[in-house]
């Protein structure tokens, strides 16, 4: 590459940088909004014009995690002084923390919904990526009769909008007793992600020269050993990228979760908006729930960022 740039090219470069900055800001604005709201006092959450400068507080998170009820009368100064710091925040908001008969603080439903989301998303991701990798390896390395048709069939399961099959699925699930179960959602998300996983992994495995396995075969390894010792490490990038996509899909899924679950196995996405309806919505609590909900995906993506960058550009570079 020539190091010399003409003034025109320089101007274009700057324009491109400005454009990228603007686009980034537009994309980050909603995230800023959620994060900011989750740290606002309740009375500043819905002001017009929006409040930008405020003293951040964590009361929304306290409220998010605890079961509360409206205060009928103000707490006595003794009660107020005896309460721990976080309970005072609830008092300040005109509410009190609900305690059971043994005076134990009652948790809100959010932590269990969050845990449901984690269990279901992680399990279905592991299953979808695992089965997808094996299937893709089969399609990539062996002559399969009707390979094209089979692959198209696998992809076609993704072609209907999920909402279309939601009601039939619900009826079937009710008959077999899978509604509001973890296993039910895990099966659903695994099936939904499998087609994606097979196609993506096939692309990655096609890129791994089959000579690597052949070398392992003549070196005295069985095909299964060659798969685990050679193909899997080589496909790590693809597995990481596929896992991130599957995880995000399962983590964010709303329609099925809303229809199939209501208590025991309910995930966070249908739970968070359900809080809007109970009384006057406290937007700060909803924002806090949303903000916490964003963290696992962000963390997972950050963890695999190096693999992802290579994964995104796969096929673009010839080996």
């Amino acid at each position: 590459m020539a190091a010399v740039q003409t003034s025109g090219e320089r101007a274009l470069n700057r324009l491109a940088i400005v454009a990228v900055l603007v686009i980034t800001m537009i994309f980050l604005a909603p995230i800023y909004w959620i994060v900011a709201t989750s740290f606002k006092p309740r009375n500043l959450a819905t002001t017009i014009p929006p409040t930008v400068v405020f003293t951040p507080e964590i009361s929304p998170f306290v409220k998010l995690m605890t079961k509360r009820s409206q205060l009928r009368e103000q707490p006595t100064p003794e009660e107020y002084a005896a309460a721990p710091w976080w309970e005072r925040m609830v008092f300040d908001g005109g509410e009190k923390v609900v305690r059971d008969g043994k005076d134990q603080v009652q948790w809100s439903a959010y932590p269990s919904r969050f845990l449901n989301s984690l269990i279901i998303a992680v399990t279905s991701t592991v299953l979808a990526v695992g089965m997808g990798t094996f299937t893709a390896y089969g399609f990539s390395r062996f002559k399969v009769k009707g390979e094209g048709d089979l692959l198209f069939f696998i992809l076609s399961t993704r072609m209907l909008p999920p909402v279309v099959v939601a009601i039939p699925m619900f009826l079937m699930y009710r008959i077999v007793g899978l509604t509001d179960t973890h296993i039910g959602l895990i099966i659903l998300y695994t099936a939904f992600n499998l087609s994606f996983s097979v196609w993506l992994m096939k692309g990655f495995i096609d890129e791994i020269p089959k000579e690597y396995e052949e070398a392992a075969l003549v070196d005295g390894y069985t095909r299964m050993q060659a798969f685990f010792k050679i193909v899997l490490p080589e496909a790590a990038t693809g597995i990481a990228a596929t896992a991130v996509f599957c995880f995000i899909t399962a983590w964010n899924e709303y329609a099925f979760a809303l229809m199939m679950t209501n208590r025991r196995a309910q995930t966070a996405p249908p739970f968070i908006p359900s809080q809007v309806g109970s009384g006057l919505p406290d937007w700060t609590v909803i924002a806090a729930g949303t903000f916490l909900f964003l963290l696992p995906v962000a963390f997972f993506t950050f963890l695999l960022r190096n693999h992802l960058l290579r994964g995104m550009s796969f096929g673009a570079i010839r080996k």
Binding site: E211, E214, A216, V218, Y221, E234
Partner: peptide
């Protein structure tokens, strides 16, 4: 099967396992 024939092969593309060191490559068989 190939693994039972006790034969070694050198490929045109060398086919060295990229995720292993030279030592591990040679030790692999």
């Amino acid at each position: 099967k190939a693994s039972d024939r006790d034969i070694a092969m050198v490929f045109q593309s060398f086919s060295l396992y990229p995720h292993m060191s030279v030592y591990e490559n040679i030790a692999f068989p």
